[in-house]
Write a protein that binds this DNA or RNA. Sequence first.
DNA 1: AATGCTAGCAACCGCGACATA
DNA 2: CTATGTCGCGGTTGCTAGCAT
Length: 261
Amino acid sequence: MVCEIISEQMGSNWGFIEEVWRKGPWTADEDRLLIEYVKLHGEGRWNSVARLTGLRRNGKSCRLRWVNYLRPDLKRGQITPNEEKIILELHARWGNRWSTIARSLPGRTDNEIKNYWRTHFKKKTKNSCDNSEKSRASLWKRQQFQLQQQQQQQQIKNQIDIKKVMSLPTMAQAKQEMAILYPNIYTIDQQDQVGLFYSMLNNSTSISQSEPSSSNEDIMWDDLWNLDDFYGHFINSTTYNKTNTSPCLQPMASTTTPSFY
DNA sequence: AATGCTAGCAACCGCGACATA
DNA sequence: CTATGTCGCGGTTGCTAGCAT
């Protein structure tokens, strides 16, 4: 199909060999060559594939083809309802960390799960204003990710506590419980967050209890999608001591409420 | 039958992390 | 410490089949 000249060379008049990588769909012959390469040399050293097999594909393309399509342990076919449930649960927890989610689904690839999610659950993009807001939130999330990993153990405990709090019948009780659980770190600012989070959670709960309709399902998926962003924000905040006044504690501080897209 | 639209999926791209020289 | 190579990840693009008009 497409055979594109990659401009990694500076021109044949300078004596560089013109390198041509094939792009587009893989042929059966190319697959066969790649499988033979992996049988002989194992996975890895993907940039050697072209040199050792004559395949005109770059290393990245070879790796992707192997990982997403040729690996013998791949499970083909439709995502099962049970797998779907796992994807939903893990996405609520991890967000768009597809490779992390894929590790819990043997035989499924991150690409497959990502495509499945986008096809089945992701709402269509909203207006550009929302997008810029989301970009900022995404940037902030990336910055916080490393910190999150370090404090993961603590967070798990926090999540359990928060679920407990959110199951309380009134917002006032929820706030009170938070003050008991986190007397040293529970700030006024976070009281607002608890209130917002509590409201949002109860809204989505009431929706899910009603007779499902397509519009309500849309709202639910929106909530799941948004819950991840806000939940991450909230959890991060709760893991800091209130004496820490670092600006990163208030990533969306200029907006008085978290952004629900 | 022709055309347009959409969902599903494979593949590509850009970037960052990590390893090694 | 720096440069370079390699790998992995998430976002995006583009092709195709199926369906609607």
